[in-house]
Write a protein that binds this DNA or RNA. Structure first.
Lengths: 337, 337
DNA sequence: GCGCTCTACTAGCGCGCTCTAGTTCGAGTA
DNA sequence: TACTCGAACTAGAGCGCGCTAGTAGAGCGC
């Protein structure tokens, strides 16, 4: 910076002004300084900048490396953050790297706020985090804590999916849940409520699962094994999320079950996987882009407005009917083995 | 820091020593200072630390948000970097965010080196990047540039896959390539060479594709359409990568083509998707963990040893035979429509 | 008693920037 | 002419650390 200033014949302060795009420099000087900087290859050092101005204008994002829905969210976070003048740093949780570790990395890099994508850490830890810094959680509520919360109205989404299936004539509708996954509890509850509302409580069945393809594959195996020992397949499955639905589809299709002729499958998320199948996956769309926007805005507003009470954004999900859901199979129709 | 020093009755320098885990403080003082720091909630500010010591000990990783293989690589980068005492910052390229932008973000956050996962940017840009900083590229060679390179021996992998298929009796083996994707050119070349070596050059066919599920789905559609107009299906397909193989499988399976009875499919990468299918995807394993380790080591060695010539690590891929490859269908067998 | 070494600690500069409180200068105003 | 004012620019403190060069004091041998 000093070099640039000297070579351009101005003070360091002016160089600083120019690089911060602030008023107070004439057009010619501005151009000259920028040209010199370019020649020298000078780029402002963000560490020093950050130290000097006391603010980093950086948002940290903690995500789980393999979750496709998270990558959809990230895609939405970048542009909104940029629009508001913030940088984004990513830190991934993996098998060997806990969420807490990922978050600490963000904080020690001076992120002013952290956005947690479907966090799975201890509520106590999250609550403490909310005290320590500005935190926004997507998909998982952190009760009683100073953490903003963005999610979609799981209940509404599930209800739409269930109404759709029932309308198609389905009665034996099974739900694979998402275990401790974000949103799972609400989805499970909404599934049960929907079955009750349609007078199907006797047939309600929740199969424990996870938000992974593996879980879908396993459930497929389970259902097939049950069929082979006499218990009929359900006619429709509401999966915990798209990944689970995909696993299930792979597993059933391979075994000769035709979707949606023999069985309907509905996912959740509308992650980019959903478009994949030739028929497309019927799924409940969570608008990742919109959720990302809200999360970024919550973080920034809290940073810039100081004390605000914890807030919550609830987005309406929307059923997207594609090819994996269809009318219930005719009674007594033989399912190919 | 000053607060901690005062409250513990020592100098700031000593607090610094203690937090850097350096020798030169007595056990009691150390404990007292740490206790005080904990009470106050002091954590060293990495911006200032970084500014003061001139080194950030941080590696930047540029990746493409939706690439599953990249997430496998990231999973391997974290532990190795930690082992060597480096922090890791992630920056994703998305549709709206170019690789260059992602890299700039890393550099302005003072990453000392960047690891590029399958970069797709202009060679000129990458070469310039190699001049400007320490850069390691995984999967894509940057010719003539000061960029280290980690990849697997694509040729060997493809050869193993082809030998496997030929041994199973396959002759009509088609390759879906990966377009400009990393490694694609080598794989394409190796496919052609293998066909030639087995005397099958007349039957060689490369279908242009990409490293995405969509591309696999599309190719499936293409092959089915061809079949319907009289051209027989190939008996085996070597896909550009696992994602492409998955798309292909979805598309074909849905149309009643049974894998591997009617058609064998081999992927490339052995990304975590490969285990998904009930039968498992036969694929060429690129050891993501090992590749990640090498990349991190390259970066760190270059940082700590100063001038080194550009280096290259070639890892041996390994064919993993799972369920999607099998003997060639009996001649004249009717493929179910 | 002296010098020596070793451990435990400290003073204070400098990292590269931002920001406040200026200064300078030319044009406009009474 | 004397002034005000705004645009263009500058000096220099300070952000929170790390690090070098140093000091104080205890222990030791002679």
């Amino acid at each position: 910076m000093a070099d640039v200033a000297e070579k351009a014949g101005v003070s360091r302060a002016l160089v600083s002004i120019i690089f911060r795009n602030q008023a107070g420099a004439s057009r010619e000087t501005r151009e000259r300084v920028l040209r010199v900087a370019d020649e020298i290859g000078y780029r402002p050092d963000s560490a020093a900048r950050l130290l000097a101005r006391g603010r980093s204008r950086t948002l940290g994002v903690m995500f789980t490396v393999q979750q496709t829905f998270h990558t959809d969210l990230i895609t939405g976070i970048y542009p909104e953050a940029e629009r508001l003048g913030y940088d984004v740093l990513l830190s991934g949780a993996t098998h060997g790297r806990s969420e807490a570790k990922a978050v600490e990395a963000l904080l020690s890099h001076r992120c002013e706020a952290v956005i947690l994508l479907g966090p799975d850490a201890e509520p106590d830890y999250l609550a403490e985090l909310g005290q320590r810094t500005v935190a926004v959680s997507i998909s998982r509520r952190v009760p009683q804590a100073h953490v903003d919360f963005v999610h979609s109205a799981e209940g509404k989404g599930v209800r739409q999916a269930m109404d759709h299936l029932v309308e198609l004539g389905h009665r034996r509708i099974v739900h694979i849940d998402g275990g401790r996954g974000p949103g799972s509890a609400e989805r499970r509850r909404a599934y049960r409520a929907a079955m009750r509302r349609h007078g199907l409580q006797a047939q309600a069945r929740v199969i424990p699962g996870e938000h992974t393809e593996e879980s879908g594959v396993e459930t497929g195996r389970l259902l097939l094994a049950e069929r082979d020992s006499g218990r009929p397949l359900p006619t429709a499955v509401l999966a915990g999320n798209d990944r689970c639905a995909m696993g299930l589809l792979m597993s059933l299709t391979r075994a000769g079950v035709e979707v949606p002729r023999d069985l309907s499958v509905v996912g959740y998320d509308d992650s980019h996987l959903s478009h994949l199948m030739p028929l497309g996956l019927t799924t409940v769309r969570q608008d990742a882009f919109l959720m990302a926007e809200h999360a970024v805005r919550f973080a920034v507003e809290r940073l810039e407005n100081g004390e605000l009470p914890p807030r919550e954004a609830v987005l309406d999900p929307k059923l997207v009917v594609r090819g994996t859901s269809g009318p219930v199979p005719a009674e007594g129709r033989r399912v190919p083995s």
